[in-house]
Design a binder for these strands. Structure first.
Length: 416
RNA sequence: CGGGAUGUAGCAUAAUGGUAGUGUACGCGGUUUGGGACCGUGUGGCCCGGGUUCGAUUCCCGGCUUCCCGACCA
């Protein structure tokens, strides 16, 4: 991508109304555009990051047999009434609307009921199970208070997977597999060492529910963690947990974390409420077992910004960066240098390297370097008159600041 | 939803009961050219409604917006 073609521009100052680091940096660098409180558009750079995160999640979900689909944002009322979750008293984040004939509709804040309702048409026998389906969907939640930039919005992208089983054993076994898949996801996203699986709190499903919490100052949760990071307990269940584990509270220290995943087992609850059953080997009707598994894709993006961003701007883990290489062209007013830089860009791209090429002729070096730091692309490769003369490229690793001088051959070996 | 703030140009800000200044960004001209350089010049603005007043961006009332704290958060 030629930077001169990007419609987004970097800016020196963040809007005064953004306090969250993630929103400040993402807006300054041109990855997101704020539309209203808790609602952000993803511009081309931001979308690429989002898609990269999704792809990692997608690969891991596929690896445990998940089949991707996409449900709808418009939800019929009756399906949610079957489980008692249409009521605003029970679910206070509903956006509701009406068809022109006054039929009430809900805008999906989650999809358990939607999935189960759909699956009633496809699941008839124990031979049809298990089934695991997932989607990336925009969830709409009428939060009383949006906050923390893209980490808690009213509209956000979530990966939600649902697994249906004939038996509790099968569900439990699959659930454990997904826990491992989730660990791989966070590992690949670069936050594996800082992410903990904890018992979730609240509701009737506490003991069947787990959260994935990543250390993050901007998070809303508090985890009690021991020195070796082997024990991590959610503050909300602290007293019960330390009693159970037999550990003293003094050995744990509170740390702020952000919830990046939440998984839970419904068991047969939804199947019973919605009368979704299958025939077992004896020909008896049995309610399906259901478990669900969520990852907040946009929130994860925010967490990565919060964790890795520094005073100069964004710092993306290589696995999710919008581009791998930021090719920064200097002295481009010199046609000879420009041709050469263009050639490097073309060849790197042809070699399969994702390159953002700062081909702006009028921008000065200082501005380009500042932009490069702000954009957070993992590797900056400088092409300049100086470099052309000595046949070398300056390669700077954004995260560490490490500087290398590579020949053109080394450059291509390194990056393709 | 309770509490506290907030609203002036694309962005960041200043002053003001008599229609608004600066920085940045943007346009044009010129000098520069490895860390947001400089000179000149130009374009562009008072959240909405009502009230007080000769006159309101300013004061008052209401609304809306955005942010923060709390509550909430399958």
């Amino acid at each position: 991508m030629r930077q001169s073609h990007l419609f987004t521009k970097t800016r020196k100052e963040a809007p005064a109304d953004e306090v969250a680091k993630n929103a400040q940096l993402l807006i300054r660098a041109g990855y997101v555009h704020k539309v209203m409180a808790g609602v952000y558009a993803y511009t081309p750079l931001g979308l690429r990051v989002l898609e990269n995160i999704k792809q990692i999640v997608r690969e891991e979900m596929n690896a445990v047999g998940g089949q991707e689909l996409i449900m709808t944002s418009l939800q019929p009322k009756d399906v949610w009434e079957e489980t008692g979750r249409w009521s605003d008293e029970t679910v206070d984040v509903w956006f509701k609307t009406k068809l022109q004939d006054d039929t009430e509709l809900g805008l999906a804040w989650s999809h358990e009921e939607a999935i189960v309702s759909m699956m009633a048409q496809y699941v008839h026998s124990y031979k049809d199970l298990p089934i695991s389906v997932y989607q990336f969907q925009t969830k709409l939640r009428n939060e009383l208070r949006a906050k923390s930039g893209i980490m808690r919005g009213r509209e956000f992208v979530m990966k939600d997977m649902y697994s249906l089983h004939a038996t509790k054993e099968d569900m439990d076994e699959y659930y454990d597999k997904v826990v491992e898949a989730y660990k791989r996801i966070y590992e690949r996203l670069g936050v594996g060492a800082d992410t903990f699986v904890t018992f979730a709190s609240g509701g009737a499903f506490t003991k069947f529910s787990h959260e994935f919490q990543t250390l993050c100052d901007a998070g809303e949760d508090v985890l009690y963690i021991d020195k070796d990071k082997t024990v991590a307990v959610n503050e909300e269940v602290l007293d019960d947990a330390i009693a159970e584990i037999g550990i003293s509270k003094d050995e744990l220290s509170p740390t702020k974390t952000a919830e990046v995943g939440n998984i839970f087992k419904f068991g047969t609850e939804k199947g019973e409420q919605m009368n979704v059953t299958f025939k077992d080997a004896d020909g008896m009707d049995k309610p399906i077992y259901l478990a669900s598994y969520g990852v907040g894709i946009t929130r994860v993006m925010g967490v990565l910004v919060e964790k890795f961003g520094d005073d100069k701007g964004l710092v993306w883990p290589e696995a999710v960066a919008a581009y791998k290489v930021h090719l920064v062209g200097l002295n481009l007013e010199d046609a000879e240098i420009k041709d050469w830089a263009d050639g490097v860009y073309t060849n790197l791209t042809k070699a399969g390297v994702e390159v953002l090429y700062d081909d702006r002729i009028e921008a000065r070096a200082g501005e380009k370097f500042s932009d490069s730091d702000l954009l957070g692309v993992p590797y900056r490769v400088v092409v300049s008159k100086k470099g052309k003369e000595n046949g070398q490229f300056e390669v700077v690793t954004r995260a560490t600041g490490e500087v290398r001088q590579l020949t053109e051959e080394e450059l291509f070996t390194d990056f393709s």
